[in-house]
């Protein structure tokens, strides 16, 4: 009972901020299940860059969620970007748009780089990031494109893959 109460249940009737609180935690919680290639980081102890591009629906929630959190030995740095900056290595990139065209543009911009792209509620398969948040039975779930992950040199743990509502396999 308690777990049901504590679980981040989201319904239309409830506060949408709870949905984004859950998505904020998911963003950093995905980190431990992803392995980036060594060249993705400037230094061995450098932070994991968590970038938000487009609409920022998290606000302070994201900063609070990641405060004090680490991925392995790395701290998490949150960056809000007006546009995708290829020069700034984003390890996790949240694409804040419902527009598949816009989303696709962002994804094209970082294509081939070791970036865990996260789209939100995109239905067009061509515009989905490596991770795409969906709402299933009033709960935040995700789809994973392991094929795209592989193109960026990312390894995604099978533990997460098994939680995904849909997985596009590597090959």
């Amino acid at each position: 009972m308690l777990s049901v109460l504590l679980s981040p249940v989201v319904s239309r009737a409830e506060d949408a901020s709870l949905e984004y609180a859950v998505k904020a935690t998911f963003l950093y919680k995905l980190g431990p299940f992803v392995t980036w290639p060594a060249h993705a980081f400037e230094t061995p102890t450098g932070p994991v860059n968590l970038c938000v591009v487009g609409r920022d629906s998290f606000g302070a929630t994201l900063d609070q969620a990641v405060a004090g959190q680490v991925i392995g030995t790395r701290s998490i740095a949150v960056w809000r970007l007006a546009a995708v900056d290829r020069g700034r290595a984003c390890h996790i990139l949240y694409v804040g748009t419902n527009d598949p065209r816009l989303a696709a543009e962002v994804l094209d911009a970082v294509g081939g780089t070791p970036t865990l792209t996260v789209t939100d509620g995109i239905r067009d398969a061509r515009a989905k990031g490596v991770v795409n948040f969906v709402i299933v039975a009033s709960r935040v779930r995700f789809e994973i494109d392991d094929h795209a992950a592989a193109q960026g040199g990312l390894e995604i743990s099978s533990k997460v893959l098994s939680l995904a509502v849909a997985v596009r396999p590597r090959s």
Partner: peptide, 10 residues
Amino acid sequence: AALVFDDVSA
């Protein structure tokens, strides 16, 4: 992962 992502059904 199920605990991390609070996935009770999984």
